[in-house]
C-alpha cells in the first residue's frame, strides 16, 4: 500500500528545481496535488473560499520554507498536514466567533465515488451506500479527516497521525469511533 507513496524520480527532480527557486518546481506539485487537497480540505471545512485560501497559503509556505524542508519529507503527507493544520485552526476561530459561513456551491461538483470502483464482481447494495453517505456526513470533522486519510488517500496510521498532528493512539481512537458510528447506521 505504501509503494505509491514512495517519492518518485520525477518528484525528486521537481523537488530539486523547487529548492533551486524555480517556480516550475512548485507548479508541478501544485498541479499534481491540488485536486486531492481540495477534496480533502472540503471534508474538513465545507466553505470553498476557506479551502481555496488555505491551499494558496500552503503552497506559499512551501515556497517560503523550501530551503528549510528536508528532502526526505514525503511531500504529499507534508501538504496534507499543512492544509489540515490551517483548516482546523480556522475551525476553532469560527467556533469562537460563532460566525456562520455560507456554503458556496458554485464551482465544484459533488462526485460520490465508492471504494468499490476498485473492485469487480462485488454486489453493491445502493441503500447501504446511501446510509453510509449520511453516516459520514454526520461524523465530526476530525473523524472524517482521519477516515479520509486512512481509506481514501492510503496513508498509514503513522502518516495520518502526523497529518492530524496527534499521537498514534488518538489517531486509532478517532478512527475507531468513526467506524463505530458507521456501524450503527448499518445495523
Amino acid at each position: 500500500m505504501n509503494a505509491q507513496l514512495q517519492i518518485s524520480e520525477e518528484e525528486l527532480t521537481y523537488w530539486t528545481l523547487l529548492k533551486e527557486g524555480e517556480q516550475s518546481g512548485l507548479r508541478f506539485f501544485y498541479e499534481k496535488y491540488v485536486d486531492d487537497l481540495f477534496s480533502f480540505g472540503m471534508g474538513i471545512a465545507k466553505c470553498e473560499h476557506q479551502v481555496k485560501d488555505a491551499i494558496q497559503e500552503v503552497f506559499l509556505d512551501l515556497w517560503k520554507y523550501r530551503s528549510k524542508i528536508n528532502s526526505s519529507v514525503l511531500i504529499k503527507a507534508y501538504l496534507y498536514k499543512c492544509l489540515a493544520n490551517k483548516l482546523f485552526k480556522l475551525a476553532k476561530v469560527d467556533k469562537k466567533n460563532k460566525s456562520i459561513h455560507s456554503d458556496y456551491m458554485e464551482d465544484w461538483e459533488l462526485l460520490v465515488e465508492s471504494s468499490e470502483s476498485k473492485l469487480i464482481n462485488i454486489q453493491i447494495e445502493s441503500h447501504l451506500k446511501e446510509k453510509l453517505v449520511k453516516a459520514i456526513e454526520s461524523l465530526p470533522d476530525r473523524q472524517k479527516a482521519v477516515i479520509n486519510c486512512l481509506f481514501f488517500e492510503d496513508f498509514s496510521y503513522e502518516e495520518t497521525s502526523q497529518i492530524m498532528n496527534i499521537n498514534l493512539r488518538s489517531t486509532y481512537t478517532l478512527a475507531w469511533k468513526a467506524v463505530g458510528s458507521l456501524k450503527k447506521y448499518l445495523s
Binding site: V34, D35, F38, S39, M42, G43, D107, W108, E109, L110, L111, V112, E113, S114, S115, E116, L119, I122, I124, E125, L128, K129, L132, V133, I136, I147, F151, F152, V179, L182, K183, L186
Partner: peptide, 13 residues
C-alpha cells in the same frame, strides 16, 4: 459491508 460501501465524496474544482 462497511468497507465496500464506504462512499468517497470527491469534490472537484
Amino acid at each position: 459491508k462497511i468497507l465496500i460501501h464506504l462512499p468517497h465524496e470527491k469534490k472537484q474544482i
